[in-house]
Amino acid sequence: MSETAQSNHTEKKDFLVRSSSLKDVRTFCREVFEKLQIEQNLKDELVLAIAEAAQNIVKHAYKDDPKTDDKMVVQISCKDNKLQIGFYDMGTPVDPNKVKHREIDNVKPGGLGTFFIQEIMDAVEFKDGKKPWINHLVLTKQL
């Protein structure tokens, strides 16, 4: 499946929708970014953005079902130096209009994850989930 760094490359993996899976999500991303020879600084940022998006699935899409056996899929694609990360889940439908980081002058904890994702990535887009998926989030970054 994989080719040389920064050429066309796609990998995906599924994970149980649990907070205990977040470490595995990070490990998967680090391994893929190693193959893509992405430099350390950017790699750390991308891993954080992906882990935050996965955390949002656990925390929000499965808020009412924390012991689910459902899985989420993380797909990392790199084509022509454009990195695209897809997230698929079968949780509660996300209303993209309600996904915002909080105001800067509001110092309550929470909402930081979305802020990090928006800071790190070039684009954040919710697409219609095609069956069996309910939510399909796509993060994009030009390398």
Partner: peptide
């Protein structure tokens, strides 16, 4: 060696 928004939130709560 790694901290995400959950960890930062703990620091913000602690500071407050």
């Amino acid at each position: 060696d790694y901290m995400d928004s959950s960890g930062i939130s703990v620091l913000i709560e602690s500071k407050k």
